[in-house]
Structure formats: structure tokens, C-alpha cells
Design a binder for these strands. Structure first.
Length: 342
DNA sequence: TCTGGGGTCCTAGGACCC
DNA sequence: TCTGGGGTCCTAGGACCC
């Protein structure tokens, strides 16, 4: 199977409509104002030369490269570009497409020559959208996904059973898809530092640390094992949420009340579009220093009523009994499952 | 004046039931 | 002088990804 990942997607889409910025460090994030509280969504390759990475606060990015061009995130434009990319992949004969996000997808396809197929897909996407992508090829989804990183930019890479240990064996466990810094640290506390060490770890030890499902899952991951068919059944969302980091911390109950009601109103717009009522309300709060917490409450009856959702969220907030200034609020509506479940 | 916004999935542990 | 064991539901919280 193949894993297709667009190169510097947001920045590349912006460059299509602002060709004069080509070759310059471009940073897409927030409202495009590096003095605001917001982070980098995508940095162009030129911007990455300065050490700018996605997830980095815009303020820090501006410090690293004061001459960078900062652009606001423009969702509808990326949405449209993404749809065009996915349609192009689906148009390839025999291709089964599983979308992972705006800018990436697995493509399952029967082919004698996967590298040639990858090159063909790259050419088709470029012709249709003027955008470049990298493609990883693997015998499992995990391997295809990881392979893409070695193909960037604009290239391809093959990662299979045959070269897995050679390519990945000595890399840290955090090079794996699904192992972040926390899991990496917990593995290290078991004496497991590399992918090869994870692959040969004692499964009981992993079960002891991570539980009966996740433990064996991680060992399989270390071996590059996992799903090896692409599933194109359409995604059914479980929940919709809205959250906002306030440029100025919320201090008064009135401000908090208004903010929660606004978030609930926007969440209801989303779930109405989905046609499935809110069954559980999630509240997320970040207080001033840097303490984030979430609370959940199941509703007696599923509802589309924004005030009901807001009241529940405010009740959860009141139960925290914490009157520090609030930096972030999030309201999420977990929806009633569709007929027949997920 | 450090740390977005959209998601998903997993685990632990308490309550409750039979 | 005992209080098992299996199952479900619920909430809190952690972790990861794009």
C-alpha cells in the first residue's frame, strides 16, 4: 500500500495564489499575526531552515526569523485543495483511498510496480493541483506511513519486512507512528530505547506497563506489523467540539458565561449539520499558569439545545471550584451513535 | 507574553447489578 | 471472623495525530 503526504501543504497552497512569495520563508498560522497567542500550522521549507516547526508559538517563530512572511490560516481554501487531491487519487484506476487528514491518505492498489504507480500518482496530483507530494510504500500501513518521511520532499521510499530492521532498528521508539515523547520515556524506563529493542521486548513487561491491549500493540509496532488493507468506508465523526485560546485571559463570571455560550452555539451548528444530537458534554479548561483539565457529563436526554449544553458545561466548570483566570475554554459534544453504531 | 484547534482511542477505577 | 467473579456503565485523565 501507499501513503501519500502533501509537501508543506498549507504553505504550498498559499504559494499557489501568492507566487511572489516563492523562495521566501513563509509561516501559516493563527490569524497571521505573530504577536498573538497562536501557533505555526505549516512552515515552508525555507522557514524550516530557521528552525521553525509546526506547533511552535508564532511569537517564537518570529524571533527565529523576523523576516518570515506570516499568513493567516484559511480553512475553506485548504479544504477545497484537499478535496481536489483526494478526488485525483480516487480517479486512479483500482485505487482505494483512506483519508487521514487534509493532506494525507493511504492508497491501496494492486500493482506489479509500486514505485512506478507512486510516480504516476505524484504526476497526476501535480497535474491536477500544481502541488507536490511524497509517497511511502510499504507492506503494512505503519510501514507505508513511516516510509513517507524518508521520501520527502517530492520523493518515494519503500519500507517492508525486508529493510525494516536495517532502516528503523537503531532509531528511537519515538520514530514510530503513535509513540510520542511520553510513551517514549515510559519505554525507556523499561530499558527500551530503540525500535529493535521494542521489537524484541518481553511482552509481559509491556503489558504490565501499558495494559493488555496497548502493550502487545506497541511490540507489534516495533516490528512494523499492523493492518495491511486500506479501508475506504466513509468516516463517521464521534464528536464535534470548539475551543478558543483567549488573547486576554477571562477574569469575570460574565465573560466566562458568554464564552461558554458562544462555543456551545457553534458546536450545535456542527452537530445539527450532522443530524445527531449531543449525548455527552465535554468541558476543557486551561487556567492561567498552564493547567489543563477536562470534564465529561452524560445528559439525561440527548439534545440540540445550545443553552442546555452550555448550562451543563458551566456546571462542570463550577464543580472545579477554581477561580483562576481562564486562558482556554473548549466545549465538545459527543453525539448519539448513528443507526447500527460506528 | 510559551504552549492552537480539530479530532480519536485507551486505561483505571468506582458504582452497580446478578 | 466473611465479603467471589463477571459484566456494564460512567467519569477522569493521559496520550497521540494532523
Amino acid at each position: 500500500m501507499l501513503h501519500v503526504d502533501m509537501d508543506q501543504f498549507l504553505a504550498a497552497v498559499e504559494l499557489l495564489r501568492r507566487p511572489e512569495l516563492r523562495g521566501k520563508p513563509v509561516v501559516v498560522g493563527g490569524r497571521g499575526d505573530p504577536t498573538e497567542r497562536a501557533v505555526v500550522s505549516t512552515a515552508s521549507y525555507e522557514a524550516r531552515e530557521f528552525g521553525i516547526r509546526s506547533g511552535m508559538p508564532l511569537r517564537i517563530a518570529a524571533r527565529k526569523c523576523p523576516d518570515a512572511v506570516f499568513l493567516p490560516v484559511d480553512f475553506p481554501v485548504y479544504e477545497a485543495a484537499s478535496a481536489q487531491v483526494m478526488a485525483t487519487l480516487r480517479a486512479h484506476p483500482g485505487a482505494v483511498v483512506e483519508v487521514l487528514g487534509w493532506d494525507e491518505a493511504f492508497v491501496g492498489i494492486e500493482t506489479e510496480d509500486p514505485v512506478a504507480t507512486a510516480h504516476a500518482l505524484q504526476a497526476e496530483v501535480l497535474a491536477a493541483t500544481d502541488l507536490h507530494c511524497s509517497i511511502g510504500i510499504g507492506d503494512t500501513l505503519v510501514r507505508a506511513k513511516i516510509a513517507t518521511e524518508f521520501g520527502k520532499p517530492q520523493g518515494t521510499f519503500v519500507l517492508t519486512e525486508d529493510n525494516w530492521v536495517e532502516v528503523m532498528g537503531e532509531r528511537p521508539t519515538t520514530a514510530l507512528w503513535g509513540v510520542g515523547p511520553r510513551i517514549g520515556a515510559r519505554l525507556e524506563s523499561l530499558g527500551i530505547r530503540t525500535v529493535a529493542e521494542l521489537a524484541s521486548a518481553a511482552v509481559d513487561e509491556l503489558v504490565g506497563e501499558f495494559g493488555p491491549n496497548t502493550g502487545p500493540y506497541f511490540r507489534d509496532l516495533g516490528r512494523g506489523h499492523g493492518r495491511h488493507h486500506v479501508d475506504d468506508t466513509p468516516w463517521v465523526p464521534r464528536a464535534h467540539g470548539r475551543e478558543t485560546t483567549y488573547q486576554r485571559d477571562l477574569e469575570t463570571p460574565e465573560e466566562v458565561d458568554a464564552a461558554v455560550r458562544e462555543l456551545a452555539r457553534r458546536v450545535v451548528e456542527d452537530i445539527e449539520r450532522e443530524g445527531r444530537a449531543c449525548a455527552r458534554v465535554h468541558l476543557k479548561v486551561r487556567f492561567k499558569p498552564f493547567f489543563t483539565t477536562t470534564r465529561i457529563r452524560k445528559l439525561a436526554e440527548p439534545t440540540y439545545d445550545a443553552d442546555m449544553i452550555a448550562d451543563t458545561a458551566l456546571d462542570l466548570l463550577a464543580a472545579l471550584d477554581d477561580d483562576r483566570p481562564i486562558r482556554l475554554l473548549g466545549v465538545r459534544a459527543e453525539m448519539v451513535p448513528p443507526e447500527g453504531g460506528y
